[in-house]
Design a protein around this nucleic acid. Structure first.
Lengths: 335, 335
DNA sequence: TTGTACGCGTTATCAC
DNA sequence: GTGATAACGCGTACAA
């Protein structure tokens, strides 16, 4: 493996010159530049990243903290972040909150936090903890994805991306009501900060606005999976009286609920309407196709990486976070 | 940030002793050990990984090369590998073949190959290329996931994990035939090495064994997505005569196909049976539930990491790869 | 514009 | 069992 010294010798220059070529080639005289270029080619030289990292104390690596990569919503989020980061020449490692029972701090046991050039926090499930973590490490370049304007307005605007899930759920809930449903059941998972759970809040506010009482609110203390959705729907059926509609806070749960209803011979949308939130791909492919709320994952991820890069390259205020709007998508499950 | 020198000073020992404490504490006398421990505690010292990496020329990082993380099958694979690797104190970075139009070599442009402690190749789509890449870099610790005994038998047994997809497809195809289907259509995606595509091979061999002719073979040059499945089924319907059954080489495509059939008012399984391979979670939650072939992703990933760690820690022959059997799962789509 | 020399924080190799 | 010291390969003052 050729090192910078070999290149210098072959090119007939000093190591300093080669280093300059690598970092600020425009500051080199043309003949030297060509000589170095040739030598690098001939030796197939690649700078040693270990040495470089030590010297500049920077790994060019971003940690993405996500809930669970097998969840299609989070997979899409992670994937776009990863792709975007690579455009800026950062690599990405994934941490999953599910690995550590929801405690962010235990995540960095093997790899210390300062190893990373930056962090993206996509842990909607416990925003309170995410924000606390961010505040505790405010020197570390970091972007937080938020689902609540509570944090969007309160926290550093150069570090936060926001999607208004409350508004999103309001839209879909209003739509359900406009379709004649009065007796609506809500399903979701229990989050740490129930009092400010933005989706639940959107549901409750909308129901109240129309003077309606929820049929039921089911929020199991489980992971967001189809199985949990199945189980949640099962709970609703046990109530005795069927709701007019079920509003699920995620597509993945809605798909599970759909299965449960089918097993009980309840037809969607004829016997009961179903709508949810996220617009994962499967929402278009299940049967019936789901009415849901689109989340602009791609745009959000791109913006997140932009913010993070700005921080990492020390121009934090070139860019500030944005709030993204969610859009209602009407499909068969409410037809 | 405290460094090793600070610890040494506070503990009243030399840096060498502290280093020894970090790496082989059992070789230290008890009083010194305690002194160092105390100092580390007091200073909240964390070894600098950049320096450590440089010294030992090892990043403790594994690269996983996967097709596409949004595909649930690959997400599950990646996730288990990541979790396993973390148990051994390695971190994982994901590379996606879809980012680089299927060319593995362009993957390591920013990060040189020798930066990684090891590699896991999960690129079933072009085994020929995967194996060629592995052979070209036979000094790099690497594990290849293979879908064909062609490679399993031919390549270094300490470096390869194998699932017999040919046999898996044979099982499901035989089952379709046993259910009275004679006129079977096959859908999949075009792979680079069609002549040895293990799933297609399993299908063709089984059909021949029973003296049957395929209704059609549709293999679009697209990615494995539900949309591609939808389109593939559309092609079959254009043929005019409906097959008795469709065998899809992946669940994800089958789900898409299911949607297309539904849009054309063709009932599964009444008008036409459908079966596939992978046993992703959706296969249990779509409507009808899919008959498919289970792939023991978890066991395979665990074994893969075991093999890789053995290579990385220089005991390559403590462990050899295994072939995993695939199991038929019968559900509604063939009832 | 280019070269020299030093430092980044760790581990490994020696003497002792 | 412990301490001093030389690498590891790169970036960057500072001198020329």
């Amino acid at each position: 493996m050729a090192v910078i010294k070999d290149v210098a010798k072959l090119a007939g220059v000093s190591v300093g010159t080669v280093s300059k070529y690598l970092n600020t080639p425009e500051l080199l005289r043309e003949d030297k530049r060509e000589a170095v270029e040739d030598a690098i080619q001939k030796l197939n030289y690649r700078p040693n990243l270990f040495a470089r990292n030590l010297r500049v104390q920077d790994s060019k690596t971003i940690a993405v903290i996500a809930q669970e990569i097998r969840n299609p919503f989070h997979a899409a989020l992670f994937n776009t972040i990863r792709k975007e980061a690579m455009k800026y020449n950062y690599s990405v490692v994934l941490y999953s909150i599910n690995d550590v029972n929801g405690n962010i701090d235990t995540l960095f046991e093997s790899l210390p936090l300062h190893y990373f050039s930056g962090l993206v926090l996509c842990y909607f499930h416990d925003m309170e903890q995410s924000i606390a973590f961010a505040k505790r490490h405010d020197k570390v370049p970091m972007v937080i994805m938020s689902n609540s304007d509570r944090y969007f307005n309160e926290y550093d605007s150069a570090k936060i991306i926001h999607a208004d899930f409350t508004l999103g759920i309001e839209k879909v809930c209003e739509y359900l009501i406009s379709r004649g449903n009065k007796n609506i059941a809500y399903i979701g998972c229990k989050t740490k900060d129930t009092a400010h759970e933005p989706k639940l809040k959107g549901f409750l506010m909308t129901m109240e606005k129309y003077g309606l009482k929820p049929h039921s609110i089911t929020r199991l203390e489980k992971e967001y999976t189809m199985e949990t959705g199945y189980e949640s729907a099962g709970q609703i059926l046990k109530c005795g009286t069927l709701p007019d509609a079920i509003l699920s806070d995620t597509d993945i749960m809605a798909v599970g609920a759909l299965n449960c209803l089918r097993d009980h011979n309840i037809k969607v949308p004829d016997d009961l309407m179903l709508a949810s939130c996220d617009n994962i791909e499967f929402a278009r492919y299940c049967c019936p196709r789901l009415t849901t709320v689109n989340v602009p994952i791609e745009a959000m991820s791109i913006k997140a990486v932009e913010l993070l890069v700005a921080q990492m390259e020390d121009k934090p205020h070139l860019s500030t976070g944005t709030s993204f709007e969610l859009e209602l998508i009407i499909r068969e499950s409410t037809k």
